[in-house]
Amino acid sequence: MNIFRLAGDMSHLVAILILLLKIWRSRSCAGISGKSQVLFALVFTTRYLDLFTSFISAYNTVMKVVFLALSYATVYLIYMRFRNSYDSENDTFRVEFLLVPVIGLSFLENYSFTPMEILWTFSIFLESVAIMPQLFMITKTGEAESITNHYLFFLGLYRALYIVNWVWRYHTEGFFDQIAVVSGVVQTIFYCDFFYLYVTRVLRGRGKMSLP
């Protein structure tokens, strides 16, 4: 464990909590893509199957349980508790356009052709595109509430910190996970456009930000 990865995991946790608390406190999920949240819950489900088979550390196990619980709680709030505020007209990204390539690629490119390994690879590739429905929804509605922007900012920060973590681990322990790194870089690139807008607009007090 290094400070970059710890900061990344904390930033990821903050992002998930920001969104969950925003929905719970405003009792509304307007402007939030339920599809992205379902994809994230699927990412955690397919990645953390080793929760019961391999023990890495208490931190690892606790964080996996927390991420699974919070992501399912978010999906529950969007599709059950506050479903009348779910903006389904604007959450129209065709997730099958994401799932089909990701499933195909995880069968082609993996470390070993075993169910656990293919599911893990699937979760890595899926995570890199899971935010697309949310970014698509923002371009469609033309704007994002500041809380949604903060959520996306911390999510992007988590990915950027993981890249720094991989550089650090490569130089200190020769660690290099090609699938995770390539997929993580692609994922971070999706946030670059958002990062630019976030810094130039949202941080200047204009609470609402509209993507081009």
Partner: peptide
Amino acid sequence: DEEAKAKDEL
């Protein structure tokens, strides 16, 4: 066990 070790990231 190297595989399991390698997957120590969230």
